[in-house]
Simulated assay, not measured.
Amino acid sequence: MSATSSPIPFTGFPFPKSEYHKRQQNVLKAMEGAKLDALLVTAHHHLRYLTGYNGQGGYFRPFPLILTPGRAPTYVVRKYDELAVRAESCIDNIVPYTHQTDFAKVCADVLRGYGLRAGKIGLQLGCWNLAPADVTALQAQLPDIIVADATRLVPSLMAVKSELELKAMREAMAMTDIAVRTFQASLRVDLTEVEMAKIISDEVARAGGELWTSSTNILFGERTRLPHGLPTRNPIKNNEPAFMEIGGAKYGYASGIVRCAVLGRHSEAESLHALSVEALDAAIAAIRSGVTAGAVDTAARKVIERSGRPRAFRHRTGYQTGIHWGGRGNLSLEPGAEDILEAGMTLHMPVILFGESGRLIGCSEQVLVTDRGAEILGTTPHTLFCR
């Protein structure tokens, strides 16, 4: 009797193949405007956006998606992960490599096969998942290519969401709202951060959702001095603040939010939070299609400067969201940013302030840019929760 293997369940990509084809065509059109002969997409969240594959195997070396006008996309991946990529991506043309040292040669062979021994090749030089050694290795294989920085090309297209993407982000936001309500309902003396995290996770799971766990920050008391902190066994005491940054997830799309609370009373936290609310409201009021990212940042920053505490605000006002929590090369709401906001963009806007004691307190919203202004995606007020 001959043994037969069972078919692997198809996990698949979340959207219709036509959605990914449209995204790829938009990239090719942008490449034409940038006069690129080819583009190697290597950032994991950009690959997920264009293929559906989550990039789990990409720690080995880059898994570039090679886009060239007039040809089907080619995905260069590690042989070990080839079956997973075929099962979870919409790409048909997959070229594998086996060892790390094979990466540059196999990529170069694909480009040479497309007649690109020379030409202008776009690389995501300012994104994660591409090391300087990867670039020099490719250049050694193809010494006549011109490397162009294409860091902003894909994220500029990802910034404006389709209806399918907005549906995923709204569903993720519904889980974020459950997480916030659970956080507020569960806060009590001697509850630890890890206990709170589990209560929230269990409640979201009961609702059939999931959290973006790698970016979950839950901090109580003195640990609110940390900008980013995973939950520990630290308990909250009476008259102490609590800080939470958390987000629901759907198909890799994250809808994060910041909410704070005070158990009892805490004058510094209450004062900081009131200022953060005022600045956040001013920034949201400045949002509409056609304004610059820098103008929105200025609206928040003016409120804080008028308060006489300009050093309390030590970061940007917000950033582009979507697949993944955020990424290098994405649109950023920061001083002088000239990116023009467009209807359909989604932004996370955390106005988190430093107090004299070093504690961080603030609030945020996840917003959708519209022609009329900003639509807040969440349903939980950004007022300070006090118990």
Rank of each mutant, 00 (worst) to 15 (best):
I257R: 12
L360F: 11
W325R: 08
L333R: 07
G358T: 02
H228Y: 15
A38I: 03
F103G: 01
T11Y: 13
R23P: 00
Q56C: 06
D144I: 01
Q56V: 02
N234R: 13
A108K: 05
L123K: 00
D297M: 06
M158T: 01
R78F: 09
D134V: 14
L83N: 12
A293G: 02
A374D: 00
V303T: 10
Q366A: 15
A118F: 14
P9F: 10
L219R: 15
G294M: 09
A207P: 02
E193M: 04
E375V: 05
T136Y: 14
T151G: 10
P73Y: 12
T11V: 07
G57K: 00
A172S: 06
S6G: 05
T4Y: 13
H45M: 07
W128V: 08
P381Y: 11
R359K: 12
D109T: 14
L360K: 12
T224C: 07
Q24K: 06
K237W: 08
K17N: 03
A279K: 04
K22F: 12
L67S: 04
G126H: 11
L153E: 01
E19Y: 03
P241W: 11
V291C: 12
F243D: 03
L28K: 11
I284G: 02
A72P: 03
L28S: 06
K120L: 13
S156I: 01
A108L: 08
L138S: 01
A242K: 06
V110F: 12
N239L: 03
L111G: 05
N238C: 07
A3R: 13
E365Y: 11
T136P: 07
E171A: 07
D281W: 08
C386R: 15
R359H: 10
I246Q: 00
T68P: 00
N217H: 15
H348G: 08
G57I: 02
M169C: 02
Y59L: 11
L280M: 09
I145Y: 09
K17R: 13
M349K: 06
T216Q: 15
E278Y: 04
G344H: 09
H324V: 01
G115K: 08
N93L: 09
E270M: 13
G290S: 06
A150H: 00
W128G: 13
D109Y: 11
G378C: 09
I8A: 12
T98W: 10
S89H: 06
A274S: 04
K237G: 05
R387A: 12
L123Q: 02
T11K: 07
L157G: 01
T298E: 15
P62R: 07
Q25H: 12
